[in-house]
Write a protein that binds this DNA or RNA. Structure first.
Length: 268
DNA sequence: CGGGGTTCCTGGCCGC
DNA sequence: TGCGGCCAGGAACCCC
């Protein structure tokens, strides 16, 4: 499940390869979620940017190819077999003018591709209303605290909502709440807790980037490789196992429809 | 307008 | 062994 660190890992690789390359030919799955990818034939790639979990591949004609990887999406110069049957999960492809082919692969089809005039994100409401980037220095503890006070949702649900802060998904949310000692089910948070939570979010996201992302099952980088951050998780996926801080037993439950692991002792 | 529920998808896993 | 049933979960969408 690609979150900010996984998308950023892919972005950095594509930013080395795509600018200046043009699309010789392309194609896409018939679904409306992928079909727009086939409208960029002849276009030339410019900068590769990221907002939250969205990749924004700029085109020289003023449009953006917007990519959301969903649950199982991967994007890059993925391994292919010339002698084996075609990969049935490639939902879109772009043959470049250097002969290589960029591919979007997505088993569960929760991903999405769009081509829009730069900045015209009205068809992508989450992107249009996206909150601040975690590493934006204009995002302060005071601002983060105020944003959390502005919603009545559970803290974890608010953090996952992309409006308070961009790019956080279920894995890094559980890690950050655990590290900050904040109860994800709570609806209110004091100023010190908000400060700890923002610091923890930044830390776990930064570490995720440094370790090439978290590969639990599906995530692959732009070259088809795995990340290594899965070996460093303290909380996500560890329900029933001992808390590495207090030794108590981590609890797994479903909060607002999302699997959540937390420590009943450390996270009040 | 915001909170909450539903839906989209399919491989992997569990239990009998 | 084979198979039905269930689970994962981000964001669009709908309703109140």
């Amino acid at each position: 499940m690609p979150e900010l660190p996984e998308v950023e890992t892919i972005r950095r690789r594509l930013a080395e390869e795509l600018p200046g390359r043009s699309v010789r030919s392309c194609g896409a799955h018939a679904s409306e979620k992928f079909r727009p990818a086939a409208t960029v034939r002849g276009a030339r790639f410019a900068a590769v940017r990221r907002r939250g979990k969205y990749l924004l591949v700029e085109l020289h004609d003023g449009r953006d190819l917007v990519v959301h990887l969903g649950m199982t999406g991967s994007l890059g110069f993925l391994p292919t077999g010339d002698t084996v049957p075609a990969d049935p999960y490639v939902r879109a492809w772009w043959e470049l003018d250097d002969g290589r082919t960029l591919r979007f692969r997505d088993v569960r089809r929760f991903g999405r591709l769009a081509v829009v005039e730069r900045g015209a994100y009205d068809g992508l409401p989450t992107l249009a209303a996206l909150g601040p980037e975690p590493f934006d220095e204009e995002l302060t503890a005071a601002g983060f605290h105020a944003a959390l006070r502005g919603t009545r949702a559970r803290l974890k649900t608010a953090v996952l909502g992309q409006r308070v802060i961009a790019g956080v998904g279920n894995i890094y949310a559980d890690e950050a709440f655990w590290r900050a000692g904040v109860n994800p089910a709570a609806r209110r948070l004091g100023r010190p807790g908000a400060e700890r939570l923002l610091d923890a979010l930044r830390a776990v996201l930064q570490e995720g980037i440094e370790h090439g992302g978290t590969t639990l099952r599906d995530y692959r980088d732009a070259d088809g490789g795995s990340g290594t951050n899965q070996h460093r998780l303290d909380c996500y996926g560890r329900g029933g196992l001992p808390c590495r801080r207090c030794g108590g037993t981590l609890r797994r439950r479903v909060l607002d429809g999302r699997s959540t692991v937390s420590c009943p002792t450390c996270q009040r």
